[in-house]
């Protein structure tokens, strides 16, 4: 699976920049001095062992968690300093797809997809919302499931709906939390394709959290390796995995030699 990329990355435009970020839960120090920049139109895969704080990192970016120390800028705004209104304004431009999909299980798929539109864009008519929902459901290949409840779907389908629900607001930044975890290789490659399509179509910038090196390799311009609360290595796939660092080598060997 070779990645197709045509656009030019604007390296001067950081859409997310994180400086010296610290986050602890009681005595559990999760993030210890994270520095990171995401440029416009760029996909970065964040790798790291389970429990290293990858989800915590992106939750801080959308302001779901507050940093203990350090600065987090997204689209030019310091996230932890915003008022509720400004934060909501920012969040409309950041898509966040949850590790657990987090579909609203009291609503059917149509209502799930329409929810962000109905709640935020009061200007849209019912018909326009309907069209938008159908289009986005079509894009993730689940147009036939609109009338079903989330509990009727498989894990992979829920994941795709979860991604669709965040895409419906046309975000400038996408944060994917393990989009391919627990999926079969075919579904997983469909999601990889979806991520790439999204980036090409809307020129979004994305952070993709994953354990899956195939996904990282095929979706990302750069790889960032989170270890012991810091990024120990950031660079292209080749850069990172040609490195001498034992952490990376082991991660790489582990992932690829098992197939």
């Amino acid at each position: 699976m070779e990645k197709l990329k045509h656009h030019v990355i604007n390296r001067d435009e950081p859409v997310i920049s994180i400086k010296n970020l610290y986050k602890s839960f009681d005595n559990l120090h999760v993030l210890k001095g994270v520095d990171f920049v995401l440029h416009e139109g760029e996909n970065v895969a964040v790798l790291g062992k389970s429990g290293t704080g990858k989800s915590v990192l992106i939750k801080i970016i959308v302001g779901l968690l507050k940093p203990d120390n350090g600065e987090v800028f997204a689209l030019g705004k310091q996230v932890d300093k915003l008022s509720r209104k400004e934060l909501d304004q920012l969040r409309l431009q950041i898509g966040f797809s949850f590790q657990s999909s987090a579909l609203y299980d009291g609503m059917n798929i149509y209502q799930n997809l329409a929810f962000p539109l109905v709640m935020n864009r009061m200007g849209l008519s019912k018909k326009e919302i309907g069209v938008a929902v159908e289009n986005i459901a079509d894009a993730v290949g689940l147009k036939s499931k609109l009338k079903q409840m989330p509990s009727d779907l498989s894990g992979g389908q829920r994941k795709r709906i979860g991604i669709a629900r965040t895409l419906i607001l046309n975000p400038k930044i996408m944060l994917y939390d393990e989009p391919t975890a627990g999926l079969d290789p075919i579904t997983s490659s469909e999601i990889i394709k979806l991520i790439n399509d999204v980036q090409h179509q809307f020129n979004t910038s994305s952070i993709i959290i994953t354990h899956d090196l195939t996904c990282a390799k095929n979706t990302s311009d750069r790889i960032a390796m989170l270890y012991e609360g810091r990024f120990v290595k950031v660079g292209t796939f080749q850069d990172v995995f040609d490195d001498d660092n034992q952490v990376l080598k082991d991660f790489y060997n582990y992932n690829f030699t098992q197939e």
């Binding site: 949850f98 987090a102 965040t166």
Partner: peptide, 25 residues
Amino acid sequence: AELGSMKVTEQIDAMEVSAVNPFKY
């Protein structure tokens, strides 16, 4: 139970990130 399960399955967070105030809703 309803809000509790929405909380633990991150549905409340999901509302929050789609710029809906879950407390109000």
